[in-house]
Design a protein around this nucleic acid. Structure first.
Lengths: 216, 216
DNA sequence: GAATACATCTATGAATACATTTAAGGGTGA
DNA sequence: TCACCCTTAAATGTATTCATAGATGTATTC
């Protein structure tokens, strides 16, 4: 498989996400096209297109003639994001329980193993990455590209909250039972129990949400 | 409420959708930027951006350096789209059952009334429009902008199939129990029965899907 | 002193010119 | 005849330039 060279828009897209994930911008900050284009050594065009994509994906918001910005987290919005995630991710979990091969499951077990280690070593960045790998991995295994893209968008948006609160409450540990919960979901999938998998996923997301609002 | 002037990208977006809905393009056709820009009397820029948006929304697909095109319907893809719609729309229906006001319900009843009339007069274009109004109306009433946008994207994509098959099988009536099914869903919502509403929505979408594949 | 009209500034919106990629077609050699 | 490569044209990708909306500040008038 030849890895095809990515174009500027793609690079812009990835770079912008990376910048956000590295706390270079905080919610409410405007991501200005000229700033970004000079920062990324390219013209405004690909930057502008990348931003537009991030907006339609729900990762950013935009005010006309003002710019794109990282959405300000609000309790209502968080509630909506996590509720939507519950809806989609639980469906995904049940679908995966019906479809996943032994190989798929083994792969996810590997992710969970690394996640546990990251959790023990308190490597939050790595933890977040592996959390994403787990959830988006499941989405991929659903075999449904539409559910996958919904999941992806919702996951990112919800991660915004985790990132945001995490950065302001670094001391306050998220009550991190995440790896254990993930493990339970995967067990249900391995047992080919769609109902249980769906239910556990729902609970998992709800708990994450509840942990979040308690931190506030 | 001052109706704010829409910009070129927006106009391009709406025009392109309109062109597709009027069968000016068929699945597999490339929507070329230059063609569209001359057709819509604007430069390539807003057209290109509108197309990009339609692609990220899943309405169109793109081959690099070749163009954007209306996706070729395949049974597998149809299955995925409708399955995803089931997942999201059923959740929406249950949410609406818990939230809708008398006013909301009255509004939807109005839509259904018109839909019935359109059905009786065999005005397919109008029917499709009102079908959209019903489903996207529900999505809006879910009060969850994320579910709403998922619904919207999935609905449009699924409509592609309805449009496509409809245009090739104009004689073969879709076994149109749609208005009756919509009515049942709305009844369940009015009765504040989220479980039933969700279930009926699921069935409704599945039936639409099954009617579709039978036509093939 | 407040309100309104006007100027200005900044960032995006749009048009245009230029570069690059890639699919496709034709030619060539095995 | 088939496979491979080279050419080329067509469409997008990118840079640049110009236009414009929206916000903010400022002066003028009542």
């Amino acid at each position: 498989m030849t890895r095809n060279k990515e174009n500027s828009e793609e690079r812009a897209y990835r770079s912008i996400v990376e910048l956000i994930l590295n706390y270079e911008y905080k919610p409410g900050d405007f991501l200005l096209e000229v700033d970004l284009s000079s920062r990324l050594n390219m013209s405004r065009t690909p930057v502008s297109r990348a931003l537009a994509r991030l907006v339609t994906e729900g990762f950013l918001e935009r005010m006309k003639k003002k710019g794109c910005y990282i959405p300000l987290p609000t309790p209502e919005d968080a509630q909506q994001v996590f509720f939507a995630r519950e809806a989609v991710a639980s469906y995904v979990a049940s679908a995966v329980a019906l479809r996943a091969t032994k190989n798929d499951i083994a792969h996810l077990r590997g992710v969970l193993e690394k996640e546990k280690q990251a959790f023990l070593s308190k490597n939050k960045r790595e933890e977040a990455k592996l959390n994403e790998a787990f959830h988006l991995g499941l989405a991929r295994l659903s075999g449904n590209k539409y559910l996958q893209s919904c999941c992806r968008n919702l996951f990112w948006r919800s991660n915004l909250y985790i990132f945001y609160f995490d950065s302001f409450y670094r001391d306050a540990e998220m009550p991190q039972l995440t790896p254990a919960q993930h493990s339970g979901i995967l067990d249900a999938i391995e047992a080919r129990d769609p109902e249980l998998a769906s239910q556990l996923m729902c609970k998992h997301i709800r708990r994450t949400y509840e942990a979040l609002i308690k931190m506030q």
